[in-house]
């Protein structure tokens, strides 16, 4: 038998095979049990011939395997090409839910303050007048104590008008240092319109420690503004009055729309009012039994709706209560 001719013939046949079946036929013809090479190997008597034939067999095997894998790959390629889909076509399926915009802002604020070492306190919504007014130093006759401003359950029980009662409860429960924020629903007797709602949300912050200053308050709020409205924002603080803080300030942030040049959003002032703050009035410390000579503190309380409306530029606060998916899924 001419091993060389056999190899030439086998290699040519493998190269000529154009399908998996044809390759298999070549394999049977040249390497099968009845193939010439298998016959020759069975009949071989000397070592040298055996080695030559085995080498031929191995080369044929390799060539057939390679041809097989080339053809298999080509077949796969051809099939995949046919399996083409329109990748631009939406399939639906999984629907995403979304957190309420106020929840998203609540978490943002919580996370900022958690990072600063504050804790998050859950306050009550139904409060005694002791915590909602007396402890916060609202004088007798203050307009907030009137049923025209506040929702009463009975003479000594109200729906909290701000998140600040949580300050008093927190201070009663623990000794300084206090670093806390409290966020939640608050209630006032306001007729609903584009910027008012009898139910709204506030964030309350309270710090009581040795050596706390007004500068610490303005620094903290400046940081908060930059996180909420953008790092390039500036802050300004203006004097104000609240029963529970002294000195009291109102915090303003440079307008994120016009950056201070003046536009309709900031009513051409360049500044947007965000909310009230101040140094905790020593009367609150006396009320809860802290030593006002040793400790000082600051507090702030703002509406979350206002932050949401300013930041996302929607004109009507009532959208936040309408729960229309066309609104809520945008955020």
């Amino acid at each position: 038998m001419d091993a060389e001719a056999l190899e030439r013939e086998g290699l040519a046949a493998a190269a000529a095979a154009i399908s998996a079946d044809a390759v298999e036929a070549v394999r049977i013809e040249f390497l099968g049990r009845k193939s010439a090479i298998k016959q020759a190997l069975r009949d071989v008597r000397d070592r040298e011939t055996g080695m030559t034939l085995n080498a031929v067999r191995e080369r044929l095997e390799t060539a057939i395997d390679e041809r097989e894998s080339v053809l298999a790959r080509a077949e796969l390629d051809a099939r995949l090409t046919q399996e083409r889909v329109d990748v631009t076509l939406p399939v639906g399926g999984q629907t995403r839910g979304s957190l309420h915009l106020i929840t998203q802002i609540r978490r943002e604020v919580e996370d900022i303050f958690l990072g600063l070492g504050y804790r998050v306190v859950d306050g009550r919504e139904v409060e005694t007048t002791r915590y909602n007014f007396d402890g916060l130093n609202f004088p007798a006759g203050h307009p907030a104590r009137s049923p025209l401003a506040t929702l009463f359950i009975d003479e000594e029980t109200v729906l909290r008008t701000e998140t600040s009662p949580s300050q008093i409860r927190t201070m009663e429960m623990q000794q300084p240092p206090v670093y806390m924020v409290s966020l939640g629903r608050t209630y006032r007797r306001d007729t609903p319109d584009a910027t008012h709602s009898p139910i709204f949300h506030q964030v309350e912050g309270l710090v009581v420690d040795e050596g706390i200053t007004l500068a610490d308050l303005t620094g903290t709020l400046d940081l908060l503004f930059k996180k909420l409205f953008g790092e390039q924002r500036r802050s300004e603080f203006r004097t104000h009055y609240f029963p529970f803080t002294e000195p009291s300030i109102e915090a303003y942030v440079s307008c994120h729309i016009c950056d201070g040049d003046g536009c309709p959003v900031c009513r051409h002032s360049g500044w947007i009012e965000v909310g009230g703050a101040g140094m905790v009035d020593p009367r609150l410390f006396e009320f809860v039994g802290y030593d006002p000579e040793r400790y000082s503190g600051f507090a702030f309380g703002w509406g979350l709706e206002r932050i949401a409306m300013l930041r996302h530029e929607f004109p009507d606060l009532r959208e936040l209560w309408r729960n229309d998916l066309r609104f809520s899924r945008q955020f």
């Binding site: 804790r119 200053t213 007004l214 500068a215 303005t218 620094g219 903290t220």
Partner: peptide, 22 residues
């Protein structure tokens, strides 16, 4: 304070002995 308000610097509280967590 209200008269010198525009000059008040921005600082952060010292926050010794505190840690924040939910």
């Amino acid at each position: 304070a209200r008269v010198v308000l525009p000059r008040v610097p921005r600082t952060m509280p010292l926050r010794r002995l505190v840690e924040g967590h939910l």
